[in-house]
Design a protein around this nucleic acid. Structure first.
Lengths: 239, 239
DNA sequence: AAGCTAGGCGTACGATGTACACCTGTCAAG
DNA sequence: CTTGACAGGTGTACATCGTACGCCTAGCTT
């Protein structure tokens, strides 16, 4: 079968197929499962054949990351706050689908979907919301840091591979004889969250709403003081 | 000289020395420079000698991460807000000194410094600040997500290896003929920040203050409604 | 019909983590 | 003082990784 496929008229490979297969492979087995050899196997091809479509593994990763960016929506024609809320939620879900992408979204050479995404974000903040330039940069950085950081924690605490998370919790609980008794406040967290569970979606919403609240408050304040001559305070409360 | 050192009375290795050398190596050359062989070289020893002190590379990394945790201060005997501010700044600086640790602080098996740190954090939030349990968890998650996420961006945009950052900027600017002209809002960011520069420290403070503002506002509100019978709204503004 | 080229194949090399067997200096027990 | 156990350094070897280099062939252009 493999011979017939190799000898007969098999579909030709192309860059898009390689990238899609790579994403699937990484989704299924995690980042370390993504190997040029395994990727070639999955495509029914010899490892070196891949190099006719991607320059090297770094470029392959760049392409994969851009596919993830393409999955993230930046809504238009809604007020900036719901747009930012939806895009943050959308980014979180994309990173939940592709845990291997966490921490890699801004590395490597940015692809077209990446550039489009960032441009749409800045347009929303500047034109739609009306943030002054520096404040838009601040807002963007803050939101991105939160989303990426949250995705990172969600991945290491719950996701990637479930067995890993279980092992970690076990390691904390079964800590020698006394274990957590030296750490009463940590013990509270472990026992309490073991009872009630940990809802990442709610957790995410909490921080996101708090941040968006702060930003919109600051935006109102900036537009209020815009008419007067006072130099507007662009920082939250200063110390 | 190497022979004499090998033959003569060289200092014995121990776990702490191995960990310290590993941190130095990763600090200097980045994560991918940390190799069992190179680490052994630096210690004047054969690769397999390391395995008498660490079980494998994963355990080595666990130990290294715990050294980073040990560098992060959680101030006591100050009000919760300055404590949290100082600890966040301290964490950011530690991750700036050790970029390889970004995204790895909560992976692997937690070491003693890690446990101590988390316990101290929860103690500050629960006992000193007086947050109710769920709110303390929310607050901790929010702050950690922000700090880790910010460190991630700071590392990929500025740090790790400077040459990398320069190459990235170049790649965006020299984008074929038209380049950024399809992305006017992105272009604004590139040109504007090229002029004025990008102060990560200020950027960090902005987001941190905004978050701490939100948390302290929420804390006041929670303690105000604590006396009355109303079910306290533990969420920022809910949509 | 001729030959150019895109794209798949095979072999090979250096780097990596680490299993396994060995050797040796130090120190406690007899 | 001898002995023998053991902690700790050594050497060899293997599977797996990314990828450089050269060959081969099908199919399209001329």
């Amino acid at each position: 079968m493999q011979d017939t496929a190799a000898a007969g008229g098999r579909e030709r490979l192309n860059r898009a197929k390689v990238l899609r297969a790579a994403v699937e492979l990484a989704d299924e087995g995690g980042f370390e499962a993504l190997t040029m050899r395994r990727l070639a196997d999955r495509l029914g091809v010899v490892p070196m054949a891949l190099y006719k479509h991607v320059a090297d593994k770094r470029e392959l990763l760049d392409g994969m990351v851009d596919l993830v960016f393409a999955e993230v929506e930046v809504p238009v024609d809604v007020d900036w706050r719901t747009a930012m809320h939806r895009r943050a939620a959308s980014m979180r879900l994309a990173l939940l689908r592709h845990p291997w992408a966490v921490g890699r979204m801004e590395t490597g050479t940015p692809g077209p979907a990446n550039l489009h995404h960032h441009n749409a974000m800045m347009r929303c903040l500047r034109r739609d919301a009306g943030f002054p330039f520096r404040m838009a940069v601040h807002a963007y950085n803050l939101m991105d840091a939160y989303v990426y950081g949250f995705a990172l924690q969600e991945k290491t605490l719950a996701g990637d591979i479930p067995a890993e998370a279980a092992r970690r919790q076990k390691a904390v609980v079964d800590r020698k004889p006394s274990g957590l008794e030296d750490y009463p406040y940590l013990a509270e967290v472990v026992t309490e969250l073991a009872k009630t569970g940990f809802a990442f979606a709610d957790e995410f919403e909490f921080g996101l709403d708090l941040i968006l609240d702060g930003l919109s408050r600051m935006l109102q304040q900036a537009s209020r003081t815009a008419g007067s001559g006072s130099n507007s305070p662009l920082r939250p409360s200063a110390r």
